[in-house]
């Protein structure tokens, strides 16, 4: 088997060595829509706040960046296996993740919130949501948060993508979801979100599970690219480009303090 893999490796190396010469940075986003941060239209083009920010950073640092969609639950392995070079998929900077990848400085921060069908009358507390079925996206900080504070009293149902959680929330198959507040507000602004659901409450911030903000992820060996992104983030913050992009999607400050 090893021999075969080596042979295939040699074959593949010959096949794509031409491609490898061009230095493009592959920026990995989660393969499903995550409004308003990243959405896909039918022409195959990604857009959204995070995509705009990415292009601004890359332009500032003279990097040739392309968007590459990867399954969210495999996005860290994809980074470490070299299929992408950067993760920009609203990933929170947490201690646990920092063991396997490096992060840039944060570029926004969002608390977790609870969204539920319009008929919901409870409060967004562990007692208020006792016995309910709560949908969360697998491998997110919100899943860790929900496990820590709601895991004992409510049933957690895990999904591969937040888009699927929203879908099942609209279909009434779960009683609530716990997710990033800003992304949930993006969902509530869509027609299906508007007609089904409402924001029940914003949850108190927890540093242990939610981390210290959202940053871009890099391979541990890639400190040069990380430094370029940090410089890029600082530059677009200073030049006002950051605020200009934010105004297109939000009417408040999402950077935090």
């Amino acid at each position: 088997m090893k021999k075969q893999i080596l042979a295939l490796a040699a074959m593949a190396a010959v096949a794509v060595s031409g491609v490898a010469q061009a230095k493009t940075i592959k920026v990995g986003v989660a393969a499903e829509p995550y409004p308003p941060f990243s959405t896909l239209d039918s022409s195959g083009k990604w857009s959204g706040w995070e995509i705009d920010l990415m292009h601004a950073i890359c332009k500032d640092q003279h990097l040739d960046c392309v968007v590459k969609a990867v399954a969210w639950d495999g996005i860290i392995p994809a980074l470490n296996a070299g299929q992408i070079d950067v993760i920009m998929a609203s990933m929170s900077i947490t201690k646990k993740r920092e063991k396997v990848i490096d992060f840039s400085n944060k570029y926004y921060v969002t608390p977790a919130a609870v969204v539920a069908p319009k008929s919901a009358t409870y409060k967004a507390t562990p007692e208020g949501m006792k016995g309910l079925t709560i949908g969360v996206e697998i491998g997110t900080t919100n899943q860790a948060y929900a496990k820590k504070f709601f895991g004992k009293t409510a049933t957690l149902k895990t999904y591969q993508t937040q888009d699927q959680v929203d879908q099942d929330l609209a279909a009434g198959r779960i009683d609530a979801t716990i997710a990033d507040q800003f992304a949930l507000e993006g969902f509530l602004a869509t027609p299906s979100g508007k007609s089904c659901c409402k924001l029940v409450g914003v949850l108190p911030y927890d540093n242990e599970t939610l981390g210290t903000g959202i940053g871009a992820g890099f391979r541990k060996s890639d400190s040069k690219l990380r430094a370029e992104f940090n410089k890029g983030i600082a530059d677009v913050r200073k030049s006002g480009e950051y605020d200009k992009i934010t105004k297109k999607y939000f009417n408040f400050n999402i950077y935090g303090n």
């Binding site: 860290i76 396997v100 697998i138 899943q143 895990t158 699927q164």
Partner: peptide, 22 residues
């Protein structure tokens, strides 16, 4: 597992997400 049923494969996904061990 792709429709959220907690079978053997889904459990391995959970472990992978919790521990970042592939």
């Amino acid at each position: 597992a792709t429709i959220t049923v907690l079978d053997l494969y889904q459990v391995s996904l959970h472990i992978r997400q919790d521990t970042y061990i592939i």
